[in-house]
Amino acid sequence: MVSAAQEVLLTKKEVMEKFGVCHTTLWNWNRNNILIPVKVGKKVCYRQSDVERLILEKARQ
């Protein structure tokens, strides 16, 4: 497991491009506990490990 200090964070824009989704979809994923954002100050980011987990889950479906 990666420590919090070593965790790579992706911006909202990077995640939207990776999945080809819009802001509303990310908001819905957060609401449904599919992909939870991390706030760094006022900036919203996503853990790369969470994004990769979601990619693998979607690939299995």
Rank of each mutant, 00 (worst) to 15 (best):
V2Y: 07
S3P: 03
S3N: 14
A4E: 06
A5D: 15
A5M: 10
Q6N: 14
Q6W: 05
V8W: 02
V8Y: 10
V8E: 13
L9E: 00
L9P: 00
L9Y: 02
L10R: 05
L10I: 05
L10M: 15
L10E: 00
K12G: 00
K12L: 10
K12S: 14
K13D: 05
K13E: 05
E14M: 05
E14W: 01
E14G: 03
E14K: 04
M16S: 03
M16Y: 02
M16I: 02
E17G: 11
E17Q: 14
E17Y: 01
K18C: 00
K18G: 01
K18W: 03
F19W: 13
F19P: 05
C22W: 08
H23T: 02
H23M: 03
H23W: 08
H23A: 10
T24N: 14
L26R: 06
L26P: 06
L26N: 11
W27M: 05
W27S: 12
W27D: 11
N28T: 07
N28L: 06
W29Q: 06
R31T: 09
R31M: 10
N32I: 08
N33P: 00
N33Y: 14
N33M: 07
I34L: 12
P37S: 08
P37D: 02
P37Y: 00
V38D: 00
K39W: 05
V40E: 10
G41W: 15
G41D: 14
K42D: 03
K42T: 10
K42R: 12
K43D: 02
V44N: 01
V44T: 07
C45Q: 08
C45Y: 04
C45P: 01
C45I: 04
R47Q: 15
Q48G: 08
D50I: 04
D50Q: 07
D50K: 02
V51N: 01
V51D: 00
V51H: 01
V51E: 02
V51Y: 00
E52Q: 14
E52D: 15
L54Y: 10
I55K: 15
I55R: 06
E57G: 06
K58T: 05
A59H: 08
A59S: 12
A59M: 13
R60L: 15
R60K: 13
